[in-house]
C-alpha cells in the first residue's frame, strides 16, 4: 500500500507549487461566469446551466487533465528523480497508482469546489435545482477528467522522450477531445466513397465509435441525467441499444484501465 506516500507527495507538490489554488480559482471563475451568463437569455431552467457547463467542460477539463498528467512519469525519468523515488520500497505499480491518485485529487478538488460555489449562484438565479442530479453531474465531470488523466499518464509511461510524450498527449487531446466526431464522419465518408447521404443515417458501428471517445461518453451520461446537450444525438428512437448510458460509463472506465494498463506494461518492463 505504498502508493499512498507517492500520492501524498504528488498532491502536496501541487499545493506547494500553487497549481491547485490556481485551478480552484480558474474553475470557480469559469463556473460563476457560466452561471451568470446562462440565465441572461431569460431561460432559467437548470438544464440551461448544465448544458453550457457540459459543453465548456468537454473542452476544458480534458485539457487540464492532459496538462496535469503528461509529465507525471517521463519528467521524473528525464530528470532522474525517479531513481530516488524507486530506491524506496515502492513497486513501479505503486509509483504509477500514487501519481494517478494524487493528480486525480488535484483535478477533482477544483471541479467539485467550482461546482459547489456555482451552486449558490444557481440556486439564486435559476428555477428549482435537483440536488442529486447536480451532484451526479459534478462527479461525471470529474470522471471525464480522470479518464484523460489516465490517458496522459499512460502516454507518459511509454517512452523516455519528453517531446514524444508531449506530442502524444496533446495529439490525444485533439483527436479524442476535439476532432473525434469529425474523424469518424470522415472515415464513414471515405468508406462510402464520398456519398454524403450516409451521414444522415450513419451505420450503427459508426454511432458506437462516436460514443467511444471519453468526451462523447461524458455527453451521453450527462444526457442520461439531464436530458440535454450533445448527448441527445444518442437518445433518438432508432438509436441502437449499445449506445445506452451504461455502455458510456463502461467505456469511460475502460479508457482508464486500458491507458494505464498499456503504459504500465511498457513501463514495468523497461530499464530506467
Amino acid at each position: 500500500m505504498n502508493w499512498r506516500a507517492i500520492a501524498r507527495k504528488d498532491f502536496l507538490d501541487s499545493v506547494r507549487s500553487r497549481t491547485l489554488w490556481a485551478l480552484v480559482a480558474l474553475f470557480v471563475g469559469l463556473l460563476a461566469l457560466i452561471a451568470y451568463a446562462g440565465q441572461l437569455t431569460g431561460e432559467t431552467d437548470v438544464t440551461q446551466f448544465v448544458g453550457f457547463t457540459g459543453e465548456a467542460f468537454a473542452l476544458f477539463v480534458p485539457l487540464v487533465s492532459v496538462v496535469l498528467g503528461y509529465k507525471a512519469v517521463v519528467d521524473e525519468r528525464e530528470s532522474g528523480t525517479i531513481a530516488l523515488a524507486l530506491s524506496f520500497p515502492h513497486t513501479r505499480a505503486d509509483f504509477v497508482i500514487g501519481k494517478f491518485v494524487g493528480r486525480s485529487l488535484v483535478l477533482a478538488i477544483p471541479v467539485l469546489v467550482g461546482m459547489l460555489v456555482a451552486s449558490v449562484l444557481v440556486v439564486v438565479l435559476y428555477d428549482s435545482v435537483p440536488v442529486f442530479e447536480y451532484l451526479v453531474f459534478s462527479v461525471l465531470s470529474v470522471v471525464l477528467g480522470v479518464s484523460f488523466l489516465a490517458i496522459a499518464i499512460g502516454l507518459s509511461m511509454l517512452t523516455t522522450s519528453g517531446r514524444r510524450v508531449t506530442a502524444g498527449a496533446f495529439g490525444a487531446y485533439i483527436v479524442l477531445g476535439v476532432l473525434w466526431s469529425e474523424l469518424i464522419d470522415a472515415l464513414v465518408l471515405i468508406l462510402w466513397r464520398f456519398d454524403a447521404t450516409v451521414l444522415v443515417s450513419p451505420p450503427e458501428w459508426a454511432t458506437f465509435a462516436q460514443l467511444a471517445s471519453p468526451v462523447e461518453s461524458y455527453h451521453r451520461l450527462v444526457t442520461a441525467v439531464f436530458d440535454t446537450g450533445p448527448g441527445t444525438a444518442y437518445t433518438t428512437p432508432d438509436s441502437p441499444w449499445f449506445v445506452d448510458a451504461w455502455v458510456a460509463a463502461l467505456l469511460l472506465l475502460a479508457w482508464v484501465v486500458f491507458a494505464l494498463g498499456v503504459g504500465y506494461l511498457r513501463f514495468s518492463r523497461s530499464d530506467l
Binding site: N2, K9, D13, R16, S17, S79, G80, T81, A83, L84, S87, F88, P89, H90, T91, D94
Partner: peptide
C-alpha cells in the same frame, strides 16, 4: 520481489536528482 528487497534497504543511488521544489 524488488519492493520486498528494498524494504530492508537504504539506498544512495547514482544518477538520481533531487526534487527541486521540495
Amino acid at each position: 520481489e524488488g519492493h520486498l528487497a528494498r524494504e530492508r534497504m537504504g539506498v544512495l543511488p547514482e544518477g538520481y536528482s533531487v526534487y527541486d521544489r521540495l
